[in-house]
Amino acid sequence: MATQVTNTIRRLRFDADEMTQADLAARVGVTRQTIIAIEAGKYSLSLELAFRIADAFGKPLEQVFTYQRP
C-alpha cells in the first residue's frame, strides 16, 4: 500500500501548535493508525481524505501533498 505521494503533514502538525496525530485523526474522521500510515508514506489515501486533511490545516492541497514521479 506504499505511495508515490509525499506529504508535509508532520511539519504542518508541528506548526499547528504541535497538533497530535490523534487530534488530526479526530478532525478528519479516521483512526490514528491511518494518520501514522499516511505520514510514513505507507498508505495511498483517497482524494476526499486528502482534501479533508488539507482543510484541517487551512492549506491548499498542493501545500500538503506532492506527487513524486517514479
Binding site: 483512526t31 491511518t34 481524505l49
Partner: peptide, 11 residues
C-alpha cells in the same frame, strides 16, 4: 477503542 472504521480499514 473508538468504534471507527475508516477507508484504510476497508482496504
Amino acid at each position: 477503542p473508538p468504534h471507527l472504521v475508516d477507508e484504510r480499514d476497508h482496504l
